[in-house]
Design a protein around this nucleic acid. Sequence first.
RNA 1: GUGGGUAUGGUUCAGUCGGUUAGAACGCCAGAUUGUGGAUCUGGAAGUCGUGGGUUCGAGUCCCACUACCCACCCCA
Length: 431
Amino acid sequence: MLTRIPKGTKDVLPSETAKLQALESVIREKTRLAGYQEIRTPVFEHTELFTRSVGESSDVVRKEMYTFLDKGDRSITLKPESTAGVVRAFLEAGMHNQALPIKLYYLYSPHFRYEAPQAGRYREHHQFGIECFGATQASADAEVILLAMDLFQTLNIKNLRLRINSIGCPVCRPAYKEKLLSYLRARRDLLCDDCKDRIEINPLRVLDCKVQSCQAQLKDAPRMLDHLCDECAQHFASLQAFLDAAELPYIIDTGIVRGLDYYTKTVFEITTDTATGTLTACGGGRYDGLVEELGGPSIPAVGFGMGMERVLMLLDAQAEEDRTLDVPASTPDIYIAPLDPSLAPIAFRLLNQFRSLGLKTDMNHTTRGLRAQFKYADKLQASYVAILGEDEAQKGVIKLRDMQSGDEWEASLTEAPQMMADRIAQKAERK
RNA sequence: GUGGGUAUGGUUCAGUCGGUUAGAACGCCAGAUUGUGGAUCUGGAAGUCGUGGGUUCGAGUCCCACUACCCACCCCA
């Protein structure tokens, strides 16, 4: 082979695209019911969009972006996440002047992050995500979470955990940060090397360090939840009330901080336990300051991103017992087998006629003999084979064979298409 | 970036103590009364054994380096 697939990328082969399409149609139905409209934004944006929104201190911006100069010396970045681009488009289209709230979703949006690939992690991955602009109330946060959980439930994916947390707002977070900072600085020597760096870059991130010795040191660390301002505390309490009303079980996990800097108040993750560890299938939260940060008016927003590859992984993991998204293979109704190349034009005309009547039809395009054509038709699981030989051509008929029963009969070339359309429609009805 | 594992036809793998023309299964192609599939049988195509070096009379096999992939850490979806 000349060259192989780039590291961290994945081909989606026909065996998987069918499942993916089924997943997409479920998603489109769920978003439709909840009043979301689709938006598609470019694969690349100006680098500044991400440094401003995702944040200079985030791992994503610091070491994972695919950034390059284009021929006009503009710094361009392949999008590492979709929210920033959606906010940009929202503002650029003047949607902030329309009646709010406005709900947008994106589907199979490609994301690029330069990371070491491993199970469920790619350098190019795709997300389904939703963003709700202009809703201040925690019912909107709950609705966003509900949509994700409802989708998982429809897909019959089990063993998921909803974890929620509040990381405060510009009113209460700075004071808390100071408190945490002094706590961490006092224990600096006892923390791992990574955390020593994190203290100054983004002290909140120390909280979700997985190193045991760090976790031990963090046991008595001040928690954001205990230092929320009145508004944030009320918002968080309200969120829980809405989740309770929807009977969505959740865990309050003060370790959830999120790697993107634009979040405020609500953050959440939907995780699953795999053989090796915990994998996040969906993550999101509220970002009340982002629209303004990107040059728009002060408009609150809340949303999530969901990893399509991970959802497919979860579906595959349960494929043994569950067939929620199984799609019947696209097998031909009729395979036309001309015996001699000279008869191919007649076969070709029939092919066209069958198809215009809505029948899935295929025909021989090789030099194979009849026997081999049958073998091929059998592999395609064709319902009928139409045989066209010299005898048939002279009589102006075609011989049809029901591949299941083995019955054979002749039909005139002019009547065969409609006759087969009726027959196949009847068969479908009986099912 | 760090650690571990793997690398042999299209796919999954075998290959002994280093020994001659590297095998199997599945898949693919063709044939088995000349115009009929699934089953069976027969035959065929397909591999510079990841790359480069070294040891040796001789390397798929032993040694070294490199690369790629997988898994894990970190972080995330």
